[in-house]
């Protein structure tokens, strides 16, 4: 691999995607660039052959934002992975949660993480939170042709805005449309049920502990109604991934704490079921 030097007029600037394009990685990154003659090649392969990740939620609270996602991946009606990760740190002060086709989703996250770090290193300064949100929107939009063929990827982006000193939350649709949310956001097949739980349980002055419980409850209820969403699995010790993003940065909650909160949640449900 030789040193990538460019003449001033075709320098890719701080964009990693542009650098990939100019370094001959084109076909690997952009479904737009692959020759598509209108017949969906993926249509010939059943969508059930691809792994899909499902429900993720995000909630704003006083200190920042919390992201959470279940651990199940499905291929059609089969469970293809019990402990997949759908919540990732994008950089120090932001995170991304992804639902949809697992392969393209993982690649999108990887490129997004690289893009943020690459920009920071080339420019000597991190992108603004709005800039990061727009970057992700562009990546979702460039996935639109693949989405039309069934490989939909829909992320949630959450971050702590170090200029405004507050947590912020962005939802997307398959066209790359970016929508800032003020309270909470959901994505994936269980988002309908998870969203209702968040809507009913949310109030303005929540602390880190109560939003973690709310997010766990939302995923628990979504798993109860949606077969593609995985519930907590105390037998194998698999719990949802929960992460907070505050002024101190991205931090993932320990499994011990999640086990404790999940046990308490199950205990509450049991008490409700047994009460006359």
């Amino acid at each position: 691999m030789s040193l990538p030097l460019f003449r001033p007029h075709d320098d890719p600037g701080p964009s990693f995607a542009e650098l990939l394009r100019r370094s001959g990685f084109e076909n690997q990154i952009s479904p737009e660039s692959t020759s598509w003659d209108g017949t969906p090649p993926i249509g010939k392969v059943p969508v059930s052959d691809f792994r899909h990740g499902t429900t993720c939620v995000a909630v704003r609270y006083s200190e920042g934002v919390l992201l959470a996602g279940d651990r199940r991946a499905t291929s059609g009606n089969l469970i293809s992975h019990r402990s997949i990760e759908k919540v990732f740190a994008a950089d120090r002060h932001s995170g991304v949660a992804i639902a949809g086709a697992a392969g393209p989703a993982a690649e999108m996250v990887r490129l997004f993480q690289l893009q943020l770090e690459h920009y920071e290193k080339v420019e000597g300064e991190a992108l603004s939170l709005d800039g990061k949100a727009n970057q992700l929107g562009q990546m979702v939009r460039s996935n639109l042709p693949a989405a039309m063929q069934g490989l939909v990827v829909v992320p949630i982006f959450a971050g702590y805005d170090v200029k405004l000193n507050e947590g912020r939350l962005f939802e997307y649709d398959v066209t790359g449309g970016r929508y800032e949310e003020t309270e909470h956001a959901t994505t994936g097949s269980g988002s309908f049920h998870a969203g209702t739980v968040l809507k009913l349980g949310y109030h303005a002055s929540m602390d880190a502990g109560s939003v973690a419980d709310l997010a766990l409850t939302a995923l628990f209820e979504a798993a109860d109604e949606d077969s593609a969403t995985g519930g907590p699995d105390p037998v194998r010790g698999i719990y949802p991934i929960v992460a907070t993003i505050t002024a101190e940065g991205y931090e993932r909650l320990e499994d011990d704490e999640l086990a404790e909160r999940t046990d308490a949640l199950i205990e509450r449900r049991r008490a409700q079921a047994e009460s006359p």
Partner: peptide
């Protein structure tokens, strides 16, 4: 600085590939 940026690009490309 031109060499620095080329180095960042080289490293990020290599890490990606």
């Amino acid at each position: 600085d031109q060499l620095r940026i080329a180095g960042v690009r080289h490293a990020d490309l290599k890490g990606y590939a």
